[in-house]
Design a protein around this nucleic acid. Structure first.
Lengths: 365, 365
DNA sequence: CTGTTAGCGCATTCAA
DNA sequence: TTGAATGCGCTAACAG
């Protein structure tokens, strides 16, 4: 490419190796520095020169080489996003929020999934070094703060969803504890006492908070039954299975708290298949407020989590971190709103309650 | 950083500017080339030297700088993925498929959304130049083939979902036409004649194929009603609205074909809210087979689209394109499987059919 | 097996 | 307002 010493006229075919800044400089009859200046919008260029350079660049379909530029200015204008996995509405919502803010700041986004593994998270993050200016991190599970700190490779980092021990730095997260407590309490307030819980993935920090909230509220409620926890993994399939399992002896339970909406929906369909009336016989609540939650029948009570908002906030914070005024460590916590809908209507207002359930609920109130 | 001339002992704190390859070379008492060799696993290094270099690298938390490496070898080990937008299961499924293959090949993934705009797709792609080795492209709408070609910036590209005119190059897509025809025919075979269609976004290539399939099958069916197309945009909300609209005069329609599942689900919930029996009074089919489709009640008939599979295939093809044997232009078309479920059960087997519908359906068969 | 040398494409002093 | 020179961190011949 471009070893000629004269100024060729024909624009390079765009499928071929592209012109470099030197070629443009030569064609335009200026120095490389000048081309670099117009590239970066420097004011110290004579308008005519600038125009000529511009024209030549267009004629040759010139594009600056990002890697070279990165190396020169030690900045890639790219942010790395490391996530536990790539699944469903949660992932897409997060990415949408991140992308919206990144685009505004003309930043690129490099996504990497840890595939649920801490080791992979570490590896992938290291291989990002030199390719990104900052990091948005969400680990599949809690780790030692030193370990977490080491994983950033010294890059400016905003942690999402969950503090790792006493880890310093900037955090953005969604509180699960409070709304999960409220949801459990809401079921109790509705006259439910025999509440089952469908858990999320083991070691997942959100799932864990939700479970703990459920357990703690039950513990404070003397006339509630012993906790009943069914295994789930956040998939509708696992919710469906849990629902079927509960249908074997539906009388033993009058409410179900699923750790996320997809499982709640799977569970709902299992219950309906078995002819169990929701919320008449069994109340049901989820977590996340996925778009479909309000459309199902009965509409699903849940906690409205603004994942996109959190992603956007994380990106904003990171951008500030990269700027001249990084500021102190921050910790932004998003509070979900409770979306009380039909699936958790109180027993005395529910329809089609069978006598036994009704009696028991009244007895215990 | 690293201007010393001797060999310091203390490992650099990882929060500080990191050591470069030169520093490591100096500390290890070898040349930069040797360090580079162990970095790239060259066999031409004496084991002892390699071990020593390895140790020094670890002690200093050395990480090679990706941008520098990119520049040196003119390869970034990164793939750019340009998508029309970042929404829902479709996006996450696609990314999951892409990521799975990319990870195997130790490639990074840079995502960029065009936010529905062709202009933005062009801009973002250009700004990716020098940062990526290849491109996975999915445009928000069909464009002129030259235009499309120009947008690649000469980068090896695999096009996803939809050929732009006579554009050459590698394509991977999912056929919507055939399954959409089959779904329409399936409704007719089930005794339905008054079939409405809920459309997707204007100019979307998939949505367009599905609509055309619906129209063409109806045109071939002399005793079917005139096409009735309601506007939608692929969101459950728009499906819900369309469903409500249809409920105003439910007798006028005995089947609904929604251009995707989310709209079908929104529509289903609107119908149920209005007390319309599905599939008794109205049959319903969607497209995509989102995870939830099989769990709703009645389970949704749809076309099973393997987006993750398509994404993975696109990535595989691109990897080949980047290798020593790029091969000829290819065109892989994925055929969705029809998932016939309860929501489209034939009229004579449906339950709770009202007399009027039953009569009409029989008359027309 | 190892070191020396010369880039990769661009940004950025420092002079002019 | 411009150009020449130097360097970013690493790779890749080539010579030893």
């Amino acid at each position: 490419m471009s070893n000629g010493t004269e100024r060729p006229a024909a624009p390079a075919p765009i499928t071929t190796a592209r012109a470099s800044i030197r070629d443009i400089a030569r064609y335009a009859g200026v120095s490389v520095a000048t081309v670099s200046r117009v590239l970066n919008g420097s004011a110290l260029v004579k308008p005519e020169s600038a125009a000529r350079v511009q024209r030549i660049m267009e004629e040759h379909h010139y594009l600056p080489h990002a890697a070279a530029r990165s190396l020169g200015r030690m900045r890639s204008e790219t942010i790395g996003v490391v996530l536990p996995d790539i699944h469903g509405e949660y992932f897409s919502g997060l990415m949408r929020g991140i992308d919206a803010v990144a685009r505004e700041a003309r930043l690129h986004v490099l996504v990497a999934s840890a595939h649920g593994s801490l080791r992979e998270a570490r590896e992938v993050t290291q291989s990002l070094y030199g390719r990104i200016d900052g990091l948005l991190m969400m680990l599949p599970e809690a780790v030692d703060p030193n370990e977490a700190q080491a994983m950033t490779c010294g890059l400016p980092t905003v942690w999402m969803n969950g503090r790792h021990g006493a880890l310093e730095g900037c955090h953005v997260s969604i509180d699960s504890l409070t709304p999960a407590r409220k949801l459990t309490q809401h079921l109790i307030d509705g006259g439910r006492r025999r509440i089952a819980f469908i858990s999320g993935p083991r070691r997942n920090m959100d799932a864990d908070q939700r479970l703990r909230a459920y357990l703690s509220v039950l513990a404070e409620q003397p006339d509630a039954m012993e906790p009943l926890v069914l295994d789930g993994d956040f998939s509708e399939e696992s919710g469906y299975q849990a629902g079927r399992q509960l249908c074997v002896q539906p009388q033993s339970v009058d409410a179900i708290f699923a750790a996320n909406d997809m499982m709640a929906l799977g569970c709902l369909f299992a219950l309906q298949e078995a002819g169990v009336d929701v919320p008449g016989q069994v109340a049901l609540v989820g977590f996340d407020d996925v778009p479909i939650a309000r459309y199902v029948n009965p509409a699903l009570t849940t906690a409205g989590v603004d994942v996109a908002g959190m992603g956007g906030k994380a990106m904003s914070r990171l951008i500030q971190l990269l700027g001249p005024e990084p500021g102190e460590a921050t910790d932004d916590v998003f509070q979900p709103n409770l979306m009380i809908r039909t699936s958790s209507a109180a027993v005395n207002t529910g329809q089609g309650i069978n006598a036994e359930n009704k009696r028991r609920a009244s007895d215990q109130r």
